[in-house]
Amino acid sequence: MVEVERKVALVIGGGGGIGRTLSQGLAQRGIAVAAADLSVESAEETAAGIVRQGGEAFGLGVNITKKAEVQKVVEDVLSRWGRIDILINAAGILSRGSVADLPESEWDRVLSVNLKGVFLCTQAAARHMVGRRQGCILTLTSGRGEAGFPNGSHYSASKAGVSALTRTLAVELAPYNIRINAIGPGATDTAMYRGNSPAEVVEARLRRHPLEGGAGKPQDIVGTALFFVTEASSYVTGQIFYMKDPHAS
């Protein structure tokens, strides 16, 4: 097996939203990107876009709640490129429902993607990284995991879980020279955001400047993600870094 010379990133949820934009941002930095998504078509579309721009990428399909599928994705990347330097956990789902009415199945669905999925992907990638004594993991979390929000008990719990997972694994993996951090981007103009808020709320947030309570664009997150997955943050691990104050209205 020949290792590619450039760094390799596996981006989970790379088929759309923030994950796709981050995939493109990594590729522009010369990093080879394996974009994995529940929709293999969307992942391949991300990869094709990167390749058209002169980058190196391929797409994979994965249901991150299934351990065997996650394992296979990691193996596929390794058999193709021989290494994974960076894992970005950008897959996540959001829904709303009052706790009184929230079906157990909905609780399970959100927790299994947002928390167990992150665990499985991190576990599979970390096994490889531990062997190489090198790696960098970044998970997208949410200020909602810290501040909470009405009708989002399942989402908030899942994201708080991501924070706890991140802090714990930072300590556990530090001896293996693996850093793991999480960023909470705040309201960002993606299909997930638009699909879960009333249109007039979304429009109002999009009209406001991001520094004045407005929603940001996926592109605004790239610089921060790059900071956390490159040498620039070589002494940073276990950070839950919110890009907007979770407690601000």
């Binding site: 991001p210 520094l211 940001g216 605004d220 610089g223 921060t224 790059l226 900071f227 870094f241 919110y242 890009m243 907007k244 104050d245």
Partner: peptide, 9 residues
């Protein structure tokens, strides 16, 4: 500019 909309953190 990498942190263009980050403040108070």
């Amino acid at each position: 500019p990498a942190s263009i909309y980050i403040t108070g953190q």
